[in-house]
Nucleic acid binder design. Structure first.
Lengths: 251, 251
DNA sequence: TGCATGTCTTGATCTGGGTCAAGGCCCGGA
DNA sequence: TCCGGGCCTTGACCCAGATCAAGACATGCA
């Protein structure tokens, strides 16, 4: 079912460049003895689009971070209603130190590579190396802010505003990673199916589709194929998103 | 407008008992030199029900925790739509180290006493004293879990389920603080107006009122006055809340 | 005592988004 | 080349919850 790749040669150059645990939290400031012990437990795992990485309630004995691709955290009610509660892009952290079992389904929505550490050694490292904990605190606070922005979206925005917000969020994160802008026109490839979008936004798949069509008809976005979107005027999209002030620069 | 009380005698016994920063994070494990410097900047502030403590965007040069009463974090859109994004009960932490300005309106929904620290010395303490940061990380992770439970509520639950969930959440937090249960019958005093509930739940005030009436008619809850609620069968309430498995033990 | 204000309830009506259903498009495999 | 299955779009209809409106009840102040 899942291909597990243990630190193959081809990933070597990735280890320092893309792994936030090492790169952001550790490399710069800590002595390397700690790192060596962590390094021993580090491994890479690949998943195919659509694969579930962990089921809610399952034992989860690793933490890690996304290297490439996109993963989601989703909650499910008994009758099958689903709500996405986390969208994980490259460099995002997965897993909660100090927790035995996963609280959410973790799903790869695109092909995905994760950098993982066994939880126990990672927790030991956290105790010994304050910077790791501090960096994790920062990241968690950022996620909390993102969750709160998301709550405003879920609780108070209209379907049209929700769609506009989601496109803006993805465009911004994309841009901050890859600088895809070209003089005002922003180009995004949606990494989510309509269904995943509906789970993000608390809508049905049909409403997502209708609202994307509506934004297209109104010239807010241009759609090529199903996923490729061009935003001719980003400010207009932001207006449609109904965001307050600096709105949604988080996550 | 706001009464500021600086460490009066009558609060002395409170300082160790109720203040989570000192009590939970610091007292037990750290040397007291650090504490002394923090102690100098510690002060108590009281607010009346309805008072806004900080406006979103305002400079906020303190962090703190709720000693008694209830505060909320709320986001507002330009057209006035409001969504609560944080509900702060006694012992909850307020403020984000490393941030200059408040990201949300902080409002006292009941009379409130907060224990505050100037932000700068607190941040210095965090660098020097890892346990404070570790404790804060734990608390932030708990808040993130709560936010995600809240997102499921906002995105996927019906009005009736939302009301039942909110009553259950408050009852559980009350119970964990004060053990109010008496053989199956649980008694809660809602600390929120109907309007605050509507802001929590992403509903209108009228829908909140109607659904409370509906739950009363169906015998799920008994209502005395406007705020005093008795839950004859807690499990039935949980069923109405539609919670998955252990549902909502978080927060 | 009477009035104003804040909080809550209830009724009547409207509507945004859900539900159900049909069909289009594209890709991969027989 | 055709077929089957994802994925997406669009239409028709419906309903949960929003909106608009009236009034109940309690408290505090003149």
């Amino acid at each position: 079912m899942q291909k597990t790749i243990i630190a193959p040669v081809k990933f070597t150059h990735v280890q320092c460049g893309d792994c936030p645990i090492r790169h952001r939290a550790v490399c710069a400031r800590c002595d390397s003895d700690e790192l060596t012990s962590l390094e021993e437990t580090k491994y890479y795992r690949s998943f195919e689009a659509g694969q579930t990485i962990v089921w809610s309630g399952d034992r989860m004995d690793f933490v890690g971070s996304v290297v490439t691709g996109i993963a989601t955290l989703t909650q499910t009610m008994e009758d099958g209603r689903r709500q996405m509660v986390g969208l994980l892009l490259p460099s995002d952290f997965v897993g909660r130190p100090g927790r035995e079992t996963a609280a959410y389904d973790v799903v790869a929505t695109t092909d995905l590579v994760m950098c993982c550490f066994r939880k126990k050694p990672f927790e030991e490292l956290m105790v010994q190396t304050p910077h790791v904990g501090q960096r994790l605190l920062e990241m968690t606070l950022d996620e909390l802010d993102a969750a709160r922005e998301w709550m405003l979206l879920l609780g108070r925005k209209t379907a049209r505003e929700k769609i506009a917000s989601l496109i803006a969020i993805i465009a911004r994160r994309d841009a901050s990673l890859k600088m895809q802008k070209s003089e005002g026109r922003v180009v995004v490839d949606l990494p989510l199916t309509r269904e995943a979008m509906s789970e993000y936004l608390g809508l049905t798949l049909e409403t997502v589709s209708r609202q994307i069509s509506a934004l297209r008809k109104d010239g807010i976005i241009e759609v090529e194929g199903k996923r490729h979107i061009t935003i001719p005027d980003f400010d207009r999209l932001i207006e449609e998103a109904g965001d307050d002030s600096d709105g949604g620069f988080l996550v």
